[in-house]
Simulated assay, not measured.
Amino acid sequence: MTATVKTDTDSGAPWSPDELTERLRAVSAERYHDRHPFNVRMHEGTLTRAELRRWIANRFHYQRHIPVKDALILAKFDDPALRRGWSRRIRDHDGERAGEGGIERWLRLGEAAGIAREELLDTARVLPGVRLAVDGYVNFCRLRPALDAVAASLTELSAPDLMRTRIAAFEKHYPWIETEGLTYFRGRVGQGGRDGQEALGLVRAWARTREQQERAVAALAFKCDVLWSLLDAVDGAGAGANGVSRGASGAAEEGVGHA
């Protein structure tokens, strides 16, 4: 996706917090990956089993790096209260103990779709384009200031609506995926809304100058491009490519999702 983020370079006056919020939400409205053709087909119910399994397997590479990028962001905070609050995101994905958390729930999604846990954990199966997109996001959070890294997480503002759409689509079009496997999506409806509002509050408070505000908008656009690029890689890979196997996962099956 190559849309250009619009900024007003002719004036150095900062936007009001509400105008900054409007500009951030406009980025998500225009560039969020719910509009990607692969996601559109997923929600229309026209993906094959192989395509859906390929997405589940490769998206897991992103999922398992969420607590990594959040740990990198947390390390930038000087305020203990901020660190305590942000550490909740890590616990949400890693869990309080073994067998809990978002990463575990994604593994169960894979199992519900017929992908062995060992296949999901095998990083050698990850598509190169997916690996590049995820590495780019992790390194962005490692190297950029806290404002930029937090602003990049604002895709969470769009996550609840996407999760609701996805749950309905999976229940309607992909009944071959066991219902228990949708637990991750259900949990992210509430978590995504909470995390997005929390991050938005920080960005509104920190981005005081026009330069800071434009950096925040650009950071969110970058994150949208990461998610879009991930789907480009999955969409462009054929059955039998890295990211799924033709064994227990049944990736060679080419019937449409609801068949």
Rank of each mutant, 00 (worst) to 15 (best):
D94E: 09
K76E: 05
H93G: 05
A113Y: 01
D78C: 10
G102P: 05
W106R: 12
K76Q: 12
H93C: 03
D78K: 15
G85C: 10
E104L: 11
L109H: 09
H93S: 04
G101M: 09
D94I: 10
D94W: 01
A81R: 14
P80T: 05
A113V: 10
L121V: 04
L121Q: 01
A75I: 12
A75S: 15
R97Y: 01
R91C: 08
E100Y: 06
H93Q: 10
G101L: 08
R83V: 01
R84W: 09
G101K: 07
R91F: 01
L107Q: 00
I103G: 08
R88L: 09
D94K: 11
L109E: 00
A98R: 10
E119R: 09
G85S: 13
R88F: 07
H93Y: 08
L107P: 02
I115Y: 01
R117V: 05
K76V: 10
L82I: 07
F77Y: 15
A81T: 11
D78E: 14
L82M: 13
P80G: 07
R117P: 03
D79P: 14
E96L: 12
W106C: 04
W106K: 08
W106F: 07
W86T: 03
E111V: 14
F77P: 10
K76L: 08
G114Q: 08
L120S: 02
G95P: 15
E118G: 10
E104C: 13
H93D: 08
R88I: 10
A113G: 05
P80E: 01
F77Q: 12
T123C: 09
R89L: 09
S87M: 09
G99I: 04
R84M: 10
G102I: 06
P80R: 14
I90G: 01
R88N: 02
E104T: 15
A116F: 04
D94R: 12
I103C: 08
I115F: 03
E119S: 13
E111A: 15
A116T: 12
G110W: 07
A98W: 07
I103N: 06
G114Y: 02
R84L: 14
R105A: 06
A81K: 14
E104D: 11
G101V: 11
R108G: 02
D122W: 02
A116L: 15
E119I: 11
D92F: 09
R97F: 04
T123R: 14
E104N: 15
E104P: 15
I103D: 06
D94G: 07
T123M: 05
A81C: 04
D94T: 08
W86S: 04
D94Q: 11
E118N: 02
D122S: 06
L120R: 03
L121I: 08
R88M: 04
I90V: 11
R117M: 07
L120D: 00
I103L: 09
D92T: 11
E118C: 05
H93W: 06
G102R: 03
H93L: 07
R97V: 13
I90K: 10
R89G: 00
D79C: 13
R105D: 00
I90N: 03
